[in-house]
Structures are given as C-alpha cells and as structure tokens.
C-alpha cells in the first residue's frame, strides 16, 4: 500500500509497494537485483545497472551522513501546516541517498555537513488514514 508513504503521497501505485508495508513494520528496505546483485536506495523495480525486472527488497541500516539540508519557510500547498520544516539528504552507509525531514533530536543549529544521522521509521495511526514515513534523527 504505497499510498501510505510520505506526508502527501503522489504515487499510490508502484511495484515496490511492499516498501511501505515494511516501513510500517519498522524496517527500511532498499532493492536488490536478483540478476546482477546491484543494490539501490530508494528501491526500484527495474535494475538501474542491468534493467532486470527481477528484484527483492532487502533491509538497509538507514545510517548515513548528512549531505545537504534546507529549512523551508515558504511551503507548497498541502504542507502549510508543517512549515517551517527542515529537510535533509543523507548518503547512506550501504550506498544510495535518502531525503527526509530532520527530526526533533537534531536542532537546526546543530546541523553540520557529514554528521551522522539515521533514518527512523514513523507510523501515523492517529490520522484518518494510516501513513508511514521516515525521519532523520541523531545516530
């Protein structure tokens, strides 16, 4: 049920929909190509190296180092209630990168390039519709 993923979901249908179910169960997963073994994050159904459609979702640690960030004050439609919010990109230790909100354990004035952060799954069941996402917290 990929429509669960994100604060506002734009892509309810995808072949990697099990990612959202895994996230709900507390596991962050990337994709591994069964043909050539190449792993990617975010996951994708069709291997970026060999284009094989034969993939599986495999656990990733979610640990990474901060690559860049921004504090968004002027929010797009659908996000006004969250503004201002800080978004960061981490380079994951197993390869790949992830974009996610910076969580409460990391005050903005403590952000520094290369600092260690970890993606932490979040499940929001108090809302009308279930949604799941992840947030970057202090490692």
């Amino acid at each position: 049920m990929f429509k669960w993923f994100g604060i506002v979901n734009h892509t309810p249908h995808t072949k990697v929909a099990a990612f959202a179910q895994n996230l709900r169960e507390g596991r962050i997963t990337g994709s591994r190509c069964r043909a050539c073994g190449h792993e990617t994050f975010p996951p994708r159904a069709d291997c970026e190296k060999c284009l094989s459609p034969d993939f599986e979702l495999v656990p990733v640690s979610g640990r990474g180092r901060l690559w860049t960030w921004t504090r968004i004050t002027a929010a797009p439609r659908g996000f006004e209630a969250y503004a201002p919010y800080v978004l960061g990109v981490v380079e994951l230790e197993g390869g790949g990168r992830a974009l996610a909100p910076i969580g409460a354990s990391v005050p903005e004035d403590s952000l520094a390039m290369g600092m260690e952060l970890v993606l932490v799954p979040r499940v929001h069941e108090e809302t009308e519709e279930l949604h799941v996402d992840y947030v970057l917290e202090r490692a």
Partner: peptide
C-alpha cells in the same frame, strides 16, 4: 515525486540544497 516531493520539497528548497553544498 515518489521519494522527494512527498516530504514537501520546493523549487527554492532544491536550489538551497545546492547552495549549501557550494558554500561548504
């Protein structure tokens, strides 16, 4: 839109992230 815009990225926000790296 699958992995980025769902967290409220904006056009200025992307270039701001470029700027942060250029400054660094």
């Amino acid at each position: 839109v699958q992995w980025e815009s769902s967290f409220g990225t904006t056009f200025p926000g992307y270039y701001a992230m470029f700027a942060r790296r250029h400054m660094h």
